Amino acid sequence: MRSKNTVIIFLLFWMVFRVDNLADSADETTTLPESYLISDVPYHEQITGLSCGPAALEILYDFWGEDIDQKAIADVARSSSIGTYTWDMTRAGYFSHLSAAQGRFFPRNAPKAGYPERPLGYASFDYSSDAPWWSILKGLIVQDIPVVLLMKFSPDDDTAHYRVIVGYDEDLGVVYFVDPWGRDFDRVTNLDGTITWSMADFEDAWNYTGYGTSRPYWGAVMVPWTVAIHTTGETTAGSVLGVTAEITYPCPQPFDCAAHSASNASVEIILPTGMYVLGGSPKIDIGCFQAGDTVTVTWDVMLNADGFGASITVKATGVIAGAVPEIDKKGKNSRKVDKDKDKDKDKDRKNHNFYSAYAYTDEIGVETSIGL
Results as ranks from 00 to 15, higher is better:
154 S>E: 06
30 T>C: 07
191 L>N: 11
274 G>P: 05
205 A>G: 11
97 H>E: 08
279 G>E: 12
317 T>A: 04
18 R>K: 07
220 A>L: 15
123 A>N: 10
203 E>K: 08
263 S>Q: 14
287 G>D: 14
31 T>Y: 12
337 V>H: 10
252 P>V: 13
256 D>S: 15
109 N>D: 15
93 G>P: 09
56 A>V: 08
303 L>C: 09
200 A>M: 03
345 K>D: 12
232 T>N: 13
326 E>L: 06
187 R>W: 06
58 E>I: 00
372 L>R: 06
85 Y>I: 00
293 D>N: 15
67 D>W: 05
140 L>H: 06
254 P>R: 08
214 S>P: 11
117 E>N: 10
38 I>M: 01
241 L>V: 01
316 A>Q: 04
296 T>N: 00
330 K>E: 14
323 A>W: 05
270 I>G: 00
82 I>K: 05
290 Q>M: 02
85 Y>R: 08
153 F>A: 05
261 S>T: 15
136 I>K: 15
335 R>V: 08
89 M>A: 09
230 H>M: 06
258 A>T: 14
233 G>Q: 11
325 P>Q: 08
181 W>E: 15
128 S>T: 07
272 P>C: 03
127 Y>L: 08
116 P>C: 06
355 Y>W: 02
138 K>T: 00
138 K>W: 05
116 P>A: 08
168 Y>Q: 01
49 G>N: 14
55 A>P: 05
241 L>S: 01
269 I>M: 02
211 Y>V: 01
321 A>M: 11
314 V>P: 04
178 V>E: 02
107 P>C: 07
194 T>K: 05
236 T>H: 10
150 L>T: 03
221 V>A: 12
298 T>G: 02
63 F>K: 14
142 V>D: 04
371 G>R: 10
212 G>C: 10
80 S>A: 13
4 K>N: 08
96 S>N: 11
163 R>A: 11
355 Y>T: 07
78 R>K: 14
201 D>F: 03
241 L>N: 02
319 V>A: 06
321 A>H: 08
343 K>C: 00
115 Y>D: 10
112 K>E: 12
252 P>S: 13
91 R>D: 08
194 T>V: 12
8 I>C: 03
345 K>P: 00
256 D>Y: 10
309 G>F: 06
48 T>Q: 10
278 L>C: 01
30 T>N: 09
103 G>H: 01
182 G>R: 06
109 N>E: 12
292 G>P: 04
299 W>Q: 01
304 N>M: 14
104 R>Y: 09
323 A>G: 11
313 T>E: 13
103 G>F: 02
204 D>W: 02
21 N>P: 00
187 R>E: 09
1 M>L: 14
234 E>V: 11
166 V>E: 07
298 T>D: 13
35 S>P: 00
81 S>R: 13
77 A>M: 11
349 R>Y: 11
362 D>E: 15
324 V>S: 10
345 K>A: 13
